[in-house]
Design a protein around this nucleic acid. Structure first.
Length: 504
RNA sequence: UCCUUGAUAGCUCAGCUGGUUAGAGCGAGUGACUGUUAAUCACUAGGUCCCUGGUUCGAGCCCAGGUCAGGGAGCCA
């Protein structure tokens, strides 16, 4: 019997098994908020209605103790799930002594050290439910479109992209590297199946400490034979739309409980803007407006707003601190003011952070040099102007991977495409059409100083029935982060692995 | 690797220009209360002020070096 099904059993006696998410006690009454993975339910234990043993057990329940409670299902609109259990019998399954995560705000480091327990809290629970729905939607989309799922190897002999970001391991005495991408293997399989997608972990040893980076993340990499870059963009757009709409349809309450504004996500029903690199650069530098908005001036306005808000927050903190100095304030009121001040101080810290960052971003946008790849701040600057994902294609070939096809008309460009998520989230997809010209490919491998013998098998794909093909890679955690509007990727995966974090 | 901010009770933090015995709220424990939603109220316990060295009559506070963490850059999905 699960909490989500209580409404089917109104007026009947049922048994729930779960964990105590909260407990309150009065004389002769114990209130337990039970959590079973499907929802929350308040259970009321009344001393006058149950045996002495049952009541003693109820009193012994502490935070996160696991229990089995039998009782009558009663409708009660005051409750979270709309129902309440009036207990008849209570038995403790496993005690929980001094549960570390209190009903209170905690710092990042403390929560990350207790990730194995943090996952039980409501917000993390909701995020993981959404992650699960996203994963299911991804498989649904590709399976329904006739793609074959394939697993690429995780041990590899060579780098796909830069060599500086590889984790080296010992493979029977020889160096082997944890995979940065399954794409080259995906291309091989696409020549067997037509359309494939990989779905697995990838590893990057980047010493990055930002809100967007993990050392271990899950990547979805579709590859389609007989597709060019424009068909590729069609697939990306249909795919992202399908996933977002599936989450909106099936995870309404989860999105609501984490405070996500669903109307912002609903914009994905509109066609995704497709910009060339040249256009995108003009927008970043403020030379071209988007819907009457200018990248540079709107960022300057934001900086002004941040400064104004900082003054407001500082004034409110000072005012509340002054009030608290006056003697005779009630204890409850002191607590209330203290909580407010703590919140405001946190906001103040974020605002000060923004005041340090925005001028740097403005500088980097104003001085953007044509021909460079976009940095994190450039992505933020441009995506703030849009309310749905944008696709940027035709990049200078020097800044992109060796396997991307040169544009036949303009050989300075490679047919790569990046998808940037809105609301400042940045790159979630990178992909493009693959180079089919054997000579150009060999030249590129040499140019990137990659070991030719490691790529002989890949070159075979061009020697034996080469066809135009394209594909892309989607970072699952970045997608989850955007859809949930999380402040950091670390909350988008059950146990994040990142620079400086290997436990728990 | 670089820039930047920080480390004080189990947790979140305050601690003035260096000054005697380091504080609050929450949590925990005990007690009161028959319907609570982070319940409320009273009392109690709880500290190697991150580490090492220095300046000083005196260091939680100043200086130097280190460790760990937050944010950002580079790199990337």
């Amino acid at each position: 019997m699960y909490i989500k099904d209580l409404r089917l059993h109104e007026g009947k006696s049922v048994t729930l098994k779960g964990w105590a998410a909260n407990k309150r006690e009065s004389k002769g009454l114990v209130f337990v908020i039970l959590r079973d993975g499907t929802g929350l339910c308040q259970c009321v234990v009344d001393a006058s209605k149950v045996s002495e043993d049952t009541f003693t057990s109820a009193q012994q329940i502490s935070l996160e103790t696991s229990v089995s409670i039998t009782g009558m299902v009663v409708k009660d609109d005051r409750q979270v799930g709309g129902y309440e259990l009036q207990a008849e019998a209570v038995s403790i399954i496993g005690q929980s002594v001094d549960y570390p995560i209190a009903k209170k705000e905690h710092g990042v480091e403390f929560l990350m050290d207790h990730r194995h327990l943090w996952l039980r809290s409501q917000r993390q629970w909701a995020i993981m439910k959404i992650r699960n729905r996203i994963i299911y939607a991804i498989h649904q989309f590709f399976q329904e479109q006739g793609y074959v799922q394939m697993d690429a190897p995780l041990f590899t002999a060579n780098a796909v992209e830069g060599t500086s970001t590889l984790f080296e391991t010992d493979f029977y005495g020889d160096p082997a590297y944890l995979s940065q991408s399954g794409q080259l293997y995906g291309e091989a399989m696409a020549m067997a199946m037509g359309k494939i997608y990989t779905f697995g972990p990838t590893f990057r040893a980047e010493k990055s400490k930002t809100r967007r980076h993990l050392s271990e993340f899950w990547m979805i990499e579709p590859e389609m034979a007989f597709h060019d870059i424009f068909q590729n963009m069609n697939v990306i757009e249909a795919f992202l739309r399908h996933v977002v709409l599936a989450v909106i349809a099936d995870c309404k309450s989860e999105l609501e409980s984490i405070g996500r504004d669903v109307s912002k996500l609903e914009h994905v029903t509109k066609p995704f803007p497709r910009l060339t690199y040249d256009e995108a650069v003009r927008i970043i530098k403020g030379e071209q407006d988007v819907n009457g908005q200018n990248a540079i001036t709107s960022l300057e306005q934001e900086l002004e707003q941040v400064i104004a808000r900082t003054k407001e927050v500082e004034a409110e903190i000072a005012e509340r601190e002054e009030k608290m100095k006056v003697p005779g304030m009630k204890k409850g009121e002191i607590g209330f003011n203290q909580a407010k001040i703590d919140k405001l101080k946190q906001e103040l810290g974020d605002l000060e952070e923004a005041q340090r960052n925005i001028p740097n971003w403005l500088n980097s946008a104003r001085n953007f040099e044509y021909g460079n790849d976009f940095g994190g701040s450039d992505e933020t600057v441009i995506t703030r102007l849009f309310d749905l994902p944008i696709m940027v294609y035709n990049w200078p070939h020097e800044v992109k991977a060796f396997y991307l096809k040169r544009d036949p008309g303009q050989s300075q460009f490679a047919r790569g495409v990046d998808v940037l998520a809105p609301e400042g989230y940045g790159e979630i997809v990178g992909g493009g059409e693959r180079e089919t010209d054997l000579t150009l490919l060999i030249a590129k491998i040499n140019e990137h100083q990659l070991p030719m013998d490691a790529f002989e098998w890949y070159l075979d794909l061009r020697r034996f029935g080469s066809v135009p093909h394209a594909g892309f890679g989607l970072g699952l955690e970045r997608l989850v982060t955007w859809i949930c509007k999380l402040p950091h990727v670390r909350e988008s995966i059950p146990f994040p692995r990142m620079y400086g974090r290997l436990k728990p």
